[in-house]
Simulated scan of single mutants.
Amino acid sequence: MPIERDRLLRLLANVWVNGTELHYFLIDGAEPQRKAVRDAFAEWKALPLGLNFTETTTRAASEVRISFDAADGSWSYVGRDVLGIPTTEATMNFGWDLTDDYGHTTALHEIGHTLGLPHEHQNPFSGIVWDVEKVYAYFTGSPNFWTRAQTESNVLQKFSTTEVDGSAWDPDSVMEYWFPAGLILEPAQYSSGLMPAGGLSAPDREWAKKFYPGSTPGPEVLVPFVSRPLSLGPGAQADFVLEPEASRQYTIATFGASDVVLVLFEDDGGTLRYLGGDDDSGTGLNARLRVRLLAGRRYVVRLRLYWAGGSGDTSVMYW
């Protein structure tokens, strides 16, 4: 498993803007396995979430590509990281049967990663104290055969409180691993093993809906050359509609010192097609897109504040 694939917390830099439509492509797999993936997407959506999941039969139109390679384990890239993966490659894999309860939880878990959720045991608020050498011995052995670096990345590493936003540790989270006896020293109650209940826990449901609220106010119209001031809280979002009167190159940018991601979509008959995005990645340099827009078309711009320690005072304009 490649290092850094897996990170109910939310990694601030990897969260989608609310209202995004994710297109997933099933590369192969028997029909019962494919149906299990569809059912898991539907369960996340039904919370409800402010994300849409649409299966596509065209690999090039997909942001999420799912394979069923039994020799490659189960894994997923995290959140918006999938946008950097070539369309020739999978962004998620399932390495075992998904038709039983454990398989269903696996499908929910890996889709959770695609939503931007990291492993729950890496929660900086968990208070887990590991028997580190036993953890290395367990995960470098069968059936995982991870390297020590992979074990560090997927299990032992705790995220900084500035990287994540979410609940106190939830040992029953769908994003939590199962751990055998002897790996956890503290809390003492888990020294005999940690066995999550399976499926989405109540905190999973609560926090996922907070991250991606199912209903949000409609977007406002953004007029060329008119700056729109914004004051956003951590994780908060603002949506705008652009309806250019001339076909030409435009610049869309934020001003100030807030850590935001800016994403542009074209409204294609009610379906929002991703055109591009920019993330200042905590540099305070603002987000900026240079793109050709066509007269008579409708576009949607979405901005989301990430870093909880950053200022939410900013403005957006296009010209």
Score class of each variant (00 low, 15 high):
273 R>N: 11
47 L>R: 09
296 G>T: 02
50 G>F: 06
279 D>N: 14
77 Y>T: 08
139 F>S: 02
300 V>K: 03
292 R>S: 10
94 F>Q: 04
234 P>M: 05
279 D>V: 03
185 L>V: 15
8 L>G: 04
287 A>L: 04
245 E>G: 15
143 P>M: 12
161 T>I: 12
150 Q>D: 06
275 L>G: 01
183 L>H: 06
56 T>E: 08
26 L>D: 08
284 G>V: 13
197 A>L: 04
153 S>M: 03
45 K>S: 13
289 L>A: 06
238 A>G: 03
181 A>I: 10
252 I>L: 03
130 W>H: 11
121 H>E: 12
289 L>N: 04
233 G>P: 02
195 M>N: 11
192 S>I: 14
98 L>T: 13
58 T>C: 05
97 D>E: 09
317 M>I: 14
252 I>F: 00
281 S>K: 11
174 V>C: 13
301 V>P: 00
3 I>E: 06
240 F>V: 02
110 E>T: 07
25 F>S: 10
56 T>Q: 10
113 H>R: 01
69 D>G: 14
76 S>K: 04
273 R>M: 07
191 S>Y: 02
37 V>A: 06
34 R>C: 06
142 S>W: 00
10 R>L: 13
13 A>P: 00
131 D>R: 15
232 L>Q: 10
131 D>S: 10
229 P>T: 08
48 P>E: 13
47 L>V: 13
45 K>H: 12
112 G>Q: 01
241 V>D: 09
32 P>Q: 10
198 G>M: 04
45 K>P: 08
155 V>W: 01
201 S>P: 11
20 T>I: 02
247 S>R: 01
190 Y>I: 02
221 V>P: 00
238 A>H: 05
